[in-house]
Computed example of a mutant assay.
Amino acid sequence: MSQKVRAVIARGKNQPVTVETISVPDPGPGEAVVKVQACGVCHTDLHYREGGISDDFPFLLGHEAAGVVEAVGEGVDEVAPGDFVILNWRAVCGQCRACRRGRPWYCFDTHNAARKMTLEDGTELTAALGIGAFAEKTLVHAGQCTKVDPSVSPAVAGLLGCGVMAGLGAALNTGGVARGDSVAVIGCGGVGGAAVMGADLAGAARIVAVDIDERKLETARKLGATHTVDSRATDPVEAIRELTGGFGADVVIDAVGRPETYRQAFYARDLAGTVVLVGVPTPEMKLELPLLDVFGRGGALKSSWYGDCLPSRDFPMLVDLHLQGRLDLDAFVTETIGLDQVEEAFGKMHHGDVLRSVVVL
Rank of each mutant, 00 (worst) to 15 (best):
Leu125Met: 09
His141Phe: 00
Gly94Arg: 06
Ala98Met: 14
Ala128Pro: 02
Thr118Tyr: 00
Thr123Arg: 10
Arg103Leu: 14
Ala91Arg: 03
Ala113Ser: 15
Ala127Glu: 13
Arg90Lys: 14
Asp109Gln: 12
Asn112Tyr: 07
Cys145Asn: 12
Gly102Val: 09
Ala155Pro: 08
Ala98Arg: 07
Asp149Glu: 11
Leu125Gly: 13
Ala142Trp: 02
Arg97Leu: 13
Arg90Met: 13
Gly130Tyr: 05
Pro154Ser: 13
Ile131Met: 06
Ser151Pro: 02
Cys93Glu: 05
Lys137Thr: 02
Ala128Leu: 12
Val156Ser: 06
Leu159Val: 01
Val156Gln: 10
Thr146Lys: 01
Glu120Lys: 07
Thr110Gly: 03
Val156Glu: 13
Arg97Gln: 14
Val156Tyr: 12
Pro104Val: 08
Gln144Phe: 01
His111Ala: 12
Ala91Phe: 00
Gly158Met: 11
Ala142His: 02
Phe108Ser: 09
Val152Arg: 01
Pro154Phe: 06
Pro104Lys: 06
Ala133Asn: 11
Glu136His: 07
Thr123Phe: 12
Arg115Ala: 13
Val140Gly: 04
Thr138Gln: 09
Trp105Tyr: 14
Gly102Pro: 09
Ala114His: 07
Pro104Thr: 05
Gly130His: 09
Met117Asn: 03
Glu124Ile: 00
Ala128Gly: 07
Arg100Tyr: 03
Asn112His: 08
Thr110Phe: 12
Glu136Lys: 08
Tyr106Asn: 12
Thr138Gly: 09
Trp105Asp: 14
Lys147Thr: 12
Phe108Thr: 14
Gly130Lys: 10
Cys107Ser: 04
His111Ile: 00
Asp149Gly: 01
Pro104Gly: 06
Leu129Gln: 14
Thr138Asp: 10
Val92Glu: 14
Gly143Met: 05
Arg115Met: 02
Gly130Met: 06
Glu124Phe: 01
